[in-house]
């Protein structure tokens, strides 16, 4: 493994995981407000297609990225409106939208297949780039990757350190109390669905304009939405942990490609499955940590207890239940 340059490896993890990080952050915000946006997988594709097509037609990358984000927000808004104001199941609407937006992306994007289009150019940050080791890992990317890094911190700060973030969490934990305190949970859920959707749309744009440039069927972003959904849970609904999860899986995937030569019988696609068993495992852990008998057992083992704490997060209590004021 002489050719495994650590700097390049970590830099490619940061760049490769950028779309997944953006999508996972967006979904974390939406789910923190109690709304599940299951349409992720399709809306990433639709916004990837839109971003590429708009950037191709207008020859403007900014327009492309913005339109991708707007599409992501629009799809999320539909889920929010159906759930909050039309009283339909979030899961049902989100699932239908997943399939429908994916097909819509293939259909509308057909004429843009395999075209050579614009790409986001690398934008090294002058002084920071010179920092040994870290400089090349963090400060030698394009703008979309910087955005993904920025939003990790921003989402955490917003959710846990601002009054508005407190309201956001209140809506997700106990909408009735939030309502009593003068917050309108229905409006808040739609607002945060749209905010999360913007990030999901950015994820799509990050695919078609940077990580896997271009459009086609398949584009290469298929399945990312489901992975992001799994990572949100794996990260215990905490943006920083979710991002860490995204980097972990990106790292595993790149390692998988490196190790392809060692175990040739296992195709690289098998490694993409890894997030899902871990998601189920996290959910199991969350359930058992709440049981007293398990905690009593872990009480004596200090290390075990802290390990359990790291891996378990709490789902927002009102996740998936639409709030209806009396």
């Amino acid at each position: 493994m002489n050719d495994l340059n650590l700097t390049i490896l970590f830099a490619s993890v940061i760049a490769g995981a950028a779309p997944v990080v953006l999508a996972a952050l967006g979904e974390t915000i939406t789910e923190k407000a109690g709304l599940i946006n299951l349409s992720l997988d399709g809306s990433i594709l639709l916004s990837a297609m839109t971003a590429f097509a708009v950037a191709y037609e207008t020859d403007s990358l900014v327009m492309g990225v913005v339109s991708g984000a707007v599409v992501g927000a629009a799809v999320a808004a539909i889920v929010g409106i159906f759930s909050s104001y039309l009283g339909q199941s979030q899961v049902a609407v989100g699932f239908v939208l997943t399939l429908m937006t994916r097909d819509l992306a293939y259909f509308l994007g057909n004429s843009y297949s395999r075209l050579q289009g614009p790409q986001v150019t690398p934008l090294p940050i002058p002084l920071f780039k010179e920092i040994p080791f870290l400089g090349l890992i963090f400060f030698n990317h394009n703008l979309l990757v910087y955005l993904s890094l920025f939003f990790i911190g921003f989402c955490w700060w917003y959710i846990y350190r601002t009054p508005l973030g407190l309201q956001l969490r209140a809506v997700g934990e106990h909408p009735a109390s939030a309502y009593a305190r003068g917050i309108n949970p229905q409006k808040a859920q739609i607002l945060y669905a749209v905010c999360g959707g913007l990030l999901v749309g950015l994820a799509g744009a990050a695919f078609s304009l940077s990580a896997k440039p271009g459009w086609g069927r398949p584009q290469g972003a298929e399945g990312t939405g489901w992975i992001a959904l799994a990572i949100v849970i794996f990260g215990g609904w905490n943006p920083v942990k979710a991002a860490a999860g995204a980097y972990l899986f990106s790292f595993l995937q790149i390692l998988g490609i490196y190790f392809q030569g060692w175990i040739p019988s296992v195709p690289a696609q098998v490694f993409q499955v890894a997030p899902f068993p871990l998601m189920i495992f996290t959910l199991l852990l969350m359930y058992f940590v709440q049981k007293e008998s398990v905690m009593n057992w872990a009480e004596e083992k200090k290390r075990m207890k802290s390990a359990l704490k790291i891996f378990s997060g709490n789902a927002p209590s009102a996740l998936g239940k639409a709030y209806k004021p009396d």
Binding site: S265, Q269, V270, F276, Y287
Partner: peptide
């Protein structure tokens, strides 16, 4: 295990897909 059937089912779909790929290539 208190795992929501949607997430469990979704996860198992991908596990099944991975299993098929492994069988076909292995």
């Amino acid at each position: 295990g208190g795992v929501n059937e949607i997430f469990a089912g979704l996860g198992l779909n991908f596990v099944a897909q991975g299993l098929i790929l492994w069988l076909i290539f292995g």
